[in-house]
Nucleic acid binder design. Structure first.
Lengths: 332, 332
DNA sequence: CTGTTAGCGCTTTCAT
DNA sequence: ATGAAAGCGCTAACAG
C-alpha cells in the first residue's frame, strides 16, 4: 500500500523499487543518482513503455520546451529554409518548434503571440511584421524570451539575428560597376520594408562610390508578375545593369526583357537577391546575393537558448551575417 | 484569507468575486454561467492581463491542443504548401502545430513521434517515410490520433488524406497521347516510393489504353540535377513525349534538351508533376499536374479534429483528391 | 544517494 | 448558478 498510483513516475518508481523523486533525478540530473539505481529505473521505463508527460513538467516549471517560430509565409523559400534550420537546431537542443504563419498581417502575428503565451512557450523567434514594443506585453508577462530574425535591433530590445542587407546591396552593385556598367536601375519593393530600404541603401552607396548614377523603380509587390511588368517598362529603354531586390522580381524582369528581344546578359546584366531555388533554375540562371539562411536559423535558436539558460548573466546581442555574391549567367 | 493565491484562475476569481471553478466554466462552458457573472470575470481577466496556462489544462485533461506535423522536408514547396494550409486550419480550430522535419529518415521520424508523445500531442499528421505499424506504439500509448498525409491507407489503419497519383499519371499521359504523340518516355523516381509507383502506373494505364508504347527511366533522386542527366541521355535519340514524375526532374530534362539543341515543345513535349513554383518560372513554362495542396492540408486537420472530438462514433476514412492538368508551354 | 512532501494552475464532480 | 475540493504528473526542497 506504500503507493496506490499506477501511472507516471510513480509506476516506474514502484517497479524499480525507488521513489518518484529519484526517477525524476535519474532522468534530469543523472549525476545525483547511483549508476545501478539509474539502470534499474531505465529498465523499468523500458519495461512499461513509459512516456514522461511534458505537460506536467511544464506546469511545475512554469515554462515549456516549446519555441514559437513566427514567419510571414512558410511557402516563401527563404523562410522555409530558416524554419528547417530552426527545427533542426531546436530538436538538437531538446526543443519543439511551433510553426506560426502571420501571412504578413500584424493582427495575426499578435494572435500568435497570445497563443504562444498561453502555451507558456519558452521563447519566440519572430520575423516581425507589426510587432511593436507593447504588443509583446502578453509574451513578456509569461516570461517568454524573444529573438528577432531578419531584423536588426538595438541590443536593449533583445537578441536579433539578421543578414546584412546593406552589404548585400553593395556587393550586388559593386559587381555590376566592376564589369564596367555605368548605367544602373534598381528594381525595389516597398521601401517601408526594412530589407528593401537596406538593400537599396547599399546599392546607392556602391554606386556613389563608383561615381555611377542610379535610378530606382519601386514595385507594389515583390513578385514575378510585378517584376515582369517592370521588365516590360525597362525594355523600352534598357539600362546596362539592373539590380532587383529579390529573385522573384529578377526572374520576372529577365523574362520580360528576353521576351522583348533584349539579350541577358549581353545587352542587360541582371543581379537578383536571395538565392532562391528559382535563381538557379530560371530561364537565364541568375547571378544573385545569397543569404546564409542556415546560419541565421541556427544562430537564432542558439541565441534564444542561451538567453533561456544563461539567466541573469545574459546580454542581448545583435548578430549580423554577411551575404555572398553567387555569379551565374545573368551577370557574369 | 479566503484565498492566498495571487495567480491563475484564483486571482481572477478573487477579483471577480467568484470561485476558480466558475472562472473555468465561464471560459470553457459559457452556457453554464450567468451572463453578468461571466462579464465580471472577463473584465477581471482584462484588468489583470491574465493569460491562461495551457500546460495546466493539458495536464489535467491528459491531452494538449498541439498537433504534430511530420514532413520529409519543409524546404520542399509541396510540403511547405501543406504546412501552410495545416497551420491555418489548425489555428482556426484552436490548435497549435509543431513542425517536425524527418529529412526522409525513418529514425528521425520515429524520434519525432516520441517527442510528440511526451508533449501529449492531441494528434499527428504525418507524411510517412518509415512509419510502420509498431513504431507508432508510443504515440498510441498516450492516445494520440494519427492521420496519414499523401498516402492512402486501409481505413482500419486510421484516416488518410492524399492526392490520386494514379489519376495524375493518367491525365498527364492522356494529354500527351491526345496530342498525337505515340512515342513516350516516363522519367521516374524510385519505384519504392508509393507516389512514384502510382504516377507510373497511371501513365502505363493511359498509354495502354491508347495503344502506345512507353519506356521508363528510373532516377536515383528526384532533383533537377538527376533530371538534367536524364535529359542529356534523352537528347541522343529524343522521344516525342516525356512525362516526369516531378517538376524538378522536368526542369532538368528541359534544360538539357534545350542545351542540346532539341526544341521544347516543337521536337519534344514534356509534362511535369506537382505544379511547383518553378514550373511556372522555368525556361520553358511547364505543363504539369497540379495537386490541391491546400485542400489536402485542410482536410488532414479536419479529419484529425473530427477524430479528436468525435470520440467513439468516429469512423476512419481515406480521402483522395483529384489532381488537375495545368497546360503551359512545354506541352501545349 | 534516496525518500518525503508540497504544490504548479486547471477541470470536474458533488454539494449547495 | 456557484462553491468546495480533489487531483492530473512532475520537480525541488529538505531530511535522512
Amino acid at each position: 500500500m506504500g503507493s496506490r498510483q499506477d501511472i507516471g513516475f510513480a509506476a516506474v518508481a514502484r517497479l524499480a523499487g525507488v521513489s518518484p523523486g529519484t526517477v525524476s533525478n535519474a532522468l534530469n540530473r543523472p549525476e545525483k543518482v547511483a549508476a545501478a539505481t539509474r539502470a534499474r529505473i531505465l529498465a523499468a521505463i523500458e519495461e512499461l513503455d513509459f512516456v514522461p508527460n511534458r505537460a506536467a513538467s511544464a506546469l511545475r516549471l512554469g515554462t515549456s520546451r516549446l519555441i514559437g517560430l513566427v514567419v510571414p509565409e512558410i511557402t516563401n523559400p527563404f523562410y522555409a529554409a530558416i524554419a528547417s534550420a530552426v527545427t533542426e537546431e531546436a530538436a538538437r537542443l531538446g526543443y519543439v518548434v511551433a510553426l506560426c504563419v502571420s501571412h504578413d498581417d500584424a493582427d495575426r502575428e499578435l494572435a500568435w503571440f497570445d497563443t504562444l503565451a498561453e502555451q507558456r512557450a519558452a521563447g519566440v523567434l519572430v520575423v516581425p511584421r507589426g510587432a511593436d514594443r507593447d504588443r509583446l506585453r502578453r509574451l513578456r508577462m509569461v516570461g517568454a524570451r524573444l529573438v528577432l530574425v531578419d531584423r536588426v535591433t538595438e541590443p536593449e530590445e533583445g537578441c536579433s539575428v539578421a543578414v546584412d542587407d546593406v552589404a548585400g546591396g553593395r556587393i550586388a552593385v559593386e559587381h555590376l560597376v566592376t564589369s564596367g556598367i555605368r548605367d544602373l536601375v534598381i528594381v525595389n519593393g516597398d521601401p517601408e520594408i526594412p530589407q528593401c530600404r537596406d538593400r537599396s541603401r547599399g546599392a546607392y552607396e556602391a554606386a556613389a562610390a563608383a561615381g555611377v548614377a542610379i535610378r530606382e523603380l519601386v514595385l507594389p509587390e515583390m513578385t514575378t508578375a510585378a517584376g515582369a511588368a517592370a521588365g516590360r517598362a525597362l525594355a523600352q529603354a534598357p539600362p546596362r545593369g539592373v539590380f532587383c531586390a529579390n529573385d522573384l522580381i529578377a526572374v520576372g524582369v529577365v523574362r520580360s526583357l528576353v521576351d522583348a528581344g533584349v539579350r541577358v546578359p549581353d545587352d542587360v546584366t541582371v543581379v537578383g537577391y536571395g538565392d532562391l531555388e528559382v535563381a538557379e533554375l530560371a530561364r537565364v540562371p541568375l547571378t544573385t546575393v545569397e543569404q546564409p539562411k542556415d546560419r541565421v536559423g541556427r544562430a537564432a535558436v542558439d541565441a534564444l537558448v542561451a538567453e533561456l539558460t544563461g539567466g541573469d548573466a545574459h546580454e542581448h546581442k545583435a548578430s549580423v551575417f554577411p551575404p555572398r555574391l553567387i555569379v551565374r549567367r545573368s551577370a557574369p
